[in-house]
């Protein structure tokens, strides 16, 4: 645990053996693709105390295979059709450039304040914490070497200058260092959209995101398709990530394989 104590509640001295038990139980639950020992290390690194670690709202095993949404925390209708592989939203969207999405945590009170503190208040020290969460997530959901490079969802230049930093760029840097996959900084936001919280309705959101991004990445004729992992903080309707994927696909003749990974889903 870091010098600063738990990032969520600030408790410095945690009951050590208690925390160890929690870490172990998480490591057992999350080590599917990677070894228990590796997962144990990843969980242990998180700067959280025993209590906060235990309450961490990690998405379970049963998820929509498209968007990574958890079945257990859905409305009734979705529960009824839980035999299906994809959730209703994903089915209504149909094919898109985005291969699929995975998220690590459910977006509830546990993480809301932390993300707000990082994004809006600008406590950049939290980049380290979110980077560690994403590292954990990538080992949980993907094989190592599955991606050629990482791309963080960009901010509009104006928003960037207001905020002073791109929250996902920082996290992507952390992740890249941890897993040894390079970050490519070739996606730009061309359209300024209103804040997520100020947009109402799924339709409005999807519409506003159309052509919001531009890709100035590699030459359009690569030998083989490249494998790209998009990174964002939260997947709500998925329109941001789909628009990003769309922008990447636009000029390519050999289409890349694009997946996305978010902290919250």
């Amino acid at each position: 645990m870091s010098q600063r104590g738990c990032v969520r509640c600030g408790i410095r001295v945690a009951a050590r053996n208690q925390r160890e038990a929690v870490v172990r139980s998480w490591a057992v639950r999350l080590s599917g693709r990677t070894s228990y020992a590796h997962m144990y290390r990843l969980v242990d690194q998180l700067p959280l105390c025993a209590g906060c670690l235990e309450e961490m709202p990690v998405i379970g095993e049963r998820i929509c295979e498209q968007c990574g949404r958890s079945w257990e925390h859905q409305g009734q209708q979705n529960l009824l059709e839980s035999r299906a592989l994809r959730c209703r939203d994903c089915r209504s969207i149909g094919e898109s450039a985005l291969g699929g999405n995975r998220g690590l945590l459910r977006y509830d009170d546990w993480g809301k304040d932390l993300l707000g503190l990082y994004k809006y208040r600008g406590d950049e020290r939290l980049a380290d914490f979110f980077g560690k969460l994403l590292t954990l997530a990538i080992y949980r959901y993907f094989r190592s070497g599955q991606f050629d490079y990482l791309v963080a969802v960009p901010l509009h230049a104006k928003r960037l200058s207001e905020r002073g930093f791109n929250q996902m760029e920082r996290v992507a840097g952390q992740l890249s260092r941890a897993i040894g996959v390079p970050v490519q900084d070739a996606l730009t936001r061309t359209k300024e959209t209103a804040k997520l919280s100020q947009q109402t309705g799924r339709e409005v959101r999807i519409h506003s995101m159309q052509d919001a991004f531009a890709w100035k990445g590699e030459a359009a004729h690569p030998k083989k398709p490249s494998r790209i992992l998009l990174l964002d903080d939260i997947y709500t309707t998925g329109s941001t990530l789909r628009a990003c994927a769309q922008a990447i696909h636009k000029d390519e003749t050999v289409k890349s394989h694009i997946w996305s990974l978010t902290i919250f889903r």
């Binding site: 600008g122 002073g164 930093f165």
Partner: peptide, 23 residues
Amino acid sequence: ELTTCHTCGQGCAYCTECIGMGR
């Protein structure tokens, strides 16, 4: 904390003590 800042594009630093009242 030192940081690279996209507002000024320079080497920059911000105070973590009073961050609750704006950076």
